[in-house]
Write a protein that binds this DNA or RNA. Structure first.
Lengths: 208, 208
DNA sequence: GTCTATAATTGGATAGAC
DNA sequence: GTCTATCCAATTATAGAC
């Protein structure tokens, strides 16, 4: 039985190459990064890169799968109290925004969107590993909250989609377009609060 | 005084080249398109392309500016009646979705997002020509509706942002990721109706 | 301005030694 | 598996004739 590999200091050439490729692709996209640059960054020869990954496309796919799997795995809403609706929604909101607005998530979104015509399959992989998981977690909570009488929801799927849409807001798009940098945590909390506020105006127990 | 140039059949080599480049870039992105391909498509030599545009980057920039300017120019909400709130919001909603979900808009979004690290300035150009215009039009209507007592809005800017976010919903993201094709108009109308419905639950005159 | 032909470079991928 | 050296195709950009 082995320990899990460290995240910061990759062990082995394959991990080193994957790590270097990840940095490079997330920073510059697919087209602007050369295999030479990746090999240089990983401090190995190009032949070694090809010994582990058959092509640039394959390496790119491995990076996307790696990022998606690792980055979105932790999102959960299981332990939240459906009776304390505002606090629970606010917690979900902050977790969601922390995740989707993180520089790494934005970078992955960018390259997948930009290369969707060249790698249509990657979108599907990413969507299942990322947004779908978030959706299921959030819908689970909304369902429990509706059952507890904390929310007046007919269509849980729709309400969940609208909640996530309110959360993303304009800031997510502006980040994708590179129009603003990293928010301070206070701004993020404010965005979460405004989305929760409006969501509760529409779906709160007293609204219908 | 000359007539405006026809849109379908570009007049002159420069326009022909721009047209061909537009088709190619929108279909495949920046990196996957070669100047050879553009010259071939435009039925001119590569030297002629370079006679009109100094570089591939410059040609790309011209395409983005052209698309942004032309595509978003027509969005307006000026003539809508703030007293017939549901109908007016629904009209805005359909126009907005028609625009932002159109294949051409999705394609432009994709290439700008994908190349944002290589062409940071293009995002700004596009944002001003597109989303900002939509925002201003929609806020103008919301302000009139709030003044008329048709909506209960404190912060017009926020309400407008949330309305647009509800409209984009999941479908906009799924389009960006290439996960679904062109909607039939009925589905689009349904998405508009659901967003308006929720918006009115939150901001309608009876809700607060 | 427009063409043909070509320069100059880059970049993905591999051969062969160790 | 790993390296050095190299091949080969594609691509941006330009020279020079008309």
């Amino acid at each position: 039985m082995r320990m899990a590999e460290a995240r910061e200091e990759p062990v082995g050439k394959a991990a080193t190459i994957l790590h270097a490729a990840r940095q490079a692709f997330l920073a510059s996209g697919f087209g602007a990064v050369s295999m030479d640059a990746i090999a240089r960054e990983a401090a190995v020869s190009k032949a070694t890169v090809y010994a582990h990954f058959n092509s640039k496309e394959a390496l790119f796919g491995a990076v996307v799968a790696d990022v998606a799997e690792q980055h979105f795995a932790g999102f959960t809403a299981l332990e939240l109290d459906p009776h304390d609706i505002e606090a629970s929604l606010t917690t979900i909101a902050r977790r969601f925004l922390d995740l989707v607005l993180s520089p790494e998530a934005i970078a992955v979104n960018r390259i997948i969107i930009g290369e969707v015509t060249r790698f249509p399959a990657l979108s599907e992989v990413f969507w299942q590993a990322g947004p779908e998981r978030n959706r299921i977690q959030i819908e689970g909570f909304l369902r429990r909250a509706a059952a507890a009488g904390s929310l007046a929801i007919d269509d849980v799927r729709l309400a969940g989609e609208q909640f996530r849409s309110l959360l993303r807001g304009e800031i997510y798009l502006r980040r994708l377009f590179g129009l603003e940098g990293r928010d301070d945590p206070a701004a993020l909390a404010g965005a979460a609060a405004r989305a929760v506020h409006t969501f509760l105006r529409a779906f709160g127990p007293t609204s219908s």
